[in-house]
């Protein structure tokens, strides 16, 4: 039932909004992974980011696309919890968890998902932040890469969605969305080096667009 609702939501709401109301300009679409396990690493400006990345893949991949999202934010009431888990299919991340809590490592559900061959969507900026401005990447992504040295990480730069629906706004204003897909990156034994390369790759993709800052 939820699976059907998920397809219907993407067919009737997400696809029309993303491709007709907004419209996509995808650069290097052919670089996207054809299959999992893989991690998509993108900048984060809007709730639309997740939906745009999910629309880039063919229908049959939909059940395998798993965005990582903050549990405290998306589980704020029962409807959102049901919606984000079953319709969007998020992997909830416990932002406050400490390893000393005698629980599982907070990244364990992501590892499980990658183990099943899913494509995980990750926003290392952590939150949506200021519209159309690249925030600092948190090191969790390097940690995940260290746990999965054979999984490819794809840097992706998104532009325009922070204008269309920035943090704190409810009114969607149509803007074209530019998507720049980068080639895969793998962990090579050093977390700091992985972080630096990832940030540099995202910045290179951002520079391809020659976008003016949005003031």
């Amino acid at each position: 039932m939820n699976r059907v609702l998920r397809f219907l939501f993407f067919a009737l709401v997400v696809r029309p909004v993303v491709t007709i109301v907004l419209g996509l300009n995808v650069r290097n679409r052919e670089q996207l992974p054809a299959d999992g396990p893989a991690v998509l690493v993108a900048n984060h400006n809007s709730h639309l980011d997740t939906l745009v990345l999910m629309v880039l893949f063919p229908w049959r991949m939909l059940p395998r696309l798993r965005p990582v999202a903050a549990a405290d934010y998306f589980f704020r009431n029962r409807f959102w919890k049901w919606f984000s888990l079953n319709i969007i299919g998020i992997i909830p991340l416990d932002r406050d968890a400490r390893r000393s809590d005698n629980r599982r490592h907070p990244m364990a559900p992501i590892s499980d998902s990658l183990g099943q061959g899913d494509i995980v969507i990750l926003f290392p900026e952590g939150s949506r932040g200021d519209p159309e401005r690249l925030g600092e990447f948190q090191t969790g992504v390097a940690h995940l890469a260290k746990l999965h040295p054979d999984v490819p990480f794809y840097p992706i730069y998104l532009h325009g969605l922070g204008k269309a629906l920035p943090k704190g706004e409810r009114l969607l204003v149509p803007f074209f969305c530019d998507v720049f897909v980068g080639g895969p990156l793998r962990y090579d034994g050093d977390k700091a080096a992985f972080m630096a390369t990832m940030v540099e790759r995202i910045n290179t993709l951002a520079a391809e667009g020659h976008f003016e800052p949005w003031e």
Binding site: G23, P131, G160, K163, P174, F175, F176
Partner: peptide, 11 residues
């Protein structure tokens, strides 16, 4: 939409 996405607009 194409035009407004291309030109610099104010936040």
């Amino acid at each position: 939409k194409e035009y407004l996405s291309l030109i610099p607009t104010r936040r």
